[in-house]
Design a protein around this nucleic acid. Structure first.
Lengths: 254, 254
DNA sequence: CGCGTGCTTGAACATTATCAAACAGTGTGG
DNA sequence: CCACACTGTTTGATAATGTTCAAGCACGCG
């Protein structure tokens, strides 16, 4: 499986690893970058550009879906709900990510726009045909799902076994890591397009706890909360450490 | 994508759904049943039967893996660890399940035998070649991963948003549901091959809490703990309700 | 300028973890 | 065959992490 191995590893774009455990795939599970011109061209032929406003629902959980989408610009959240309204954001989608395939044409999550977004929409029939006639494409999407699965399992570990502060720190570190990097710059500023509630539902916490954790990290001079949606990373190594190490993360919230 | 849709839905064998939310794929994310003779035959040609003893590690997290496996008999656990030893069991593997592919030939979980097991082992090279030359097979494995991903996301919702008792009840209900069914029988007995610790690490709880929750369910006449590894479901509807409904699940542990 | 929504902070509480000890089941060796 | 030890399970008491309820604050928008 030489071909498989190379293709698969290419599915996760190389980026400076955080640690052995925190796979960079975390917040960027799926992306086809410019390194696959042939597939991109094939997709372009069957895709339509569409725009959605902030907070629009693109696909509804449980509804039959007849399109596959790729994010061109903006961010989205994939949401799963319990009957009583408890919410889980299974992932945030960034430019390059695909969503909407699999599971018998039934959406497993709702997908909602975090801001005004541009998507490329592919009819599922055409998309399926592409997979059928183009084994390389099929392989690439296979790899894509595999790394998405791995990312989901990482989050399972994160949510089920890390403390609140570790989760928050990991989230920020990973999010910062995939930001359009002014890499080395000391005062790295991260734009968070999602609300505190979204972060809470992604990490399995409450809005209040998220807010308090940010205050804690600020008090430790690890971050600075510029405004509700902008956070500066003041001490990146400390942030990573707080995400990995229960002891360093600190026993007390305050 | 007619073919895709039908194949995908076939990937999840039909079974009486628990509720809209609790997809039956949960504990049985991946399985190729006898309904695919051609693929089965193809696989048989490249597979080798291997046996492992209880507690043996079949693949180690992070290690390069050169085989894909299918469970023939017995059960296994897929484990992910934090550097300090905190553990998460991402899933339990049952007969029919595949594991070991994807992620650039690097294992993302350790996989360990819960009891003495029999596996079919496929060299990754042959397996990759099969996917390359057989689009139908590729499609079926694609579907398989898709439902596994969906299952992982279900667990994300379970672990991040359900209470301890809800998790336990959901786990038991789903596990019972995929048991070799003496379906209607009032006194349905479930064999749990994994330890309390395994259950705890699967649900994001502690051994003690798991034990207490079983005691609670027993006190409510919903289950009976025959011995450490055998549990009788006395009131299946109540078990389902306890897994779905925070209110019915009960405010107090005791 | 004032309202509304979302964010922050505070205090009390609850769920679940931790620590500790007893108990049970299983296999081993005398 | 029984005693013993070992490991996994159960139960109890205490404590902590994170939630809930509640109030104030701030930013953005009409």
């Amino acid at each position: 499986m030489t071909a498989l191995a190379t293709t698969i590893s290419a599915a996760v774009p190389g980026r400076r690893a955080l640690t052995t455990r925190e796979r960079p795939a975390y917040l960027r599970p799926v992306s086809t970058s410019a390194d696959r011109p042939s597939l991109a061209a094939e997709l372009d032929r069957i895709g339509t550009v569409v725009n959605y406003d902030r907070d629009k629902t693109i696909v509804e959980e449980g509804a039959a879906s007849s399109y596959v989408f790729r994010v061109a610009s903006g961010m989205l959240r994939a949401v799963r709900l319990l009957p009583d309204g408890r919410r889980c954001i299974t992932r945030f989608l960034v430019p390059g990510d695909f969503f909407g395939f699999g599971n018998g044409g039934t959406a497993t999550d709702s997908v909602e726009a975090l801001n005004n977004i541009t998507l490329v929409r592919y009819p599922m029939t055409s998309f399926g045909a592409l997979l059928d006639r183009n084994p390389t494409a099929a392989r690439q999407f296979f790899d894509m799902i595999c790394s998405e699965l791995s990312a989901a399992q990482d989050r399972l570990l994160l949510v089920s076994r890390k403390t609140a502060l570790e989760r928050m720190a990991t989230f920020l570190a990973l999010f910062a890591d995939r930001q359009p990097a002014k890499a080395g710059s000391k005062d790295m500023t991260v734009k968070l397009p999602m609300s505190r509630g979204d972060i809470a539902d992604h990490l399995g916490l409450t809005v209040e706890t998220v807010s308090r954790l940010l205050a804690t990290l600020r008090a430790r001079q690890i971050i600075d909360v510029r405004n509700a949606s902008e956070i500066a990373i003041l001490n990146h190594p400390a942030l990573l450490a707080a995400g990995e190490n229960a002891f360093q993360a600190g026993v007390n919230l305050l």
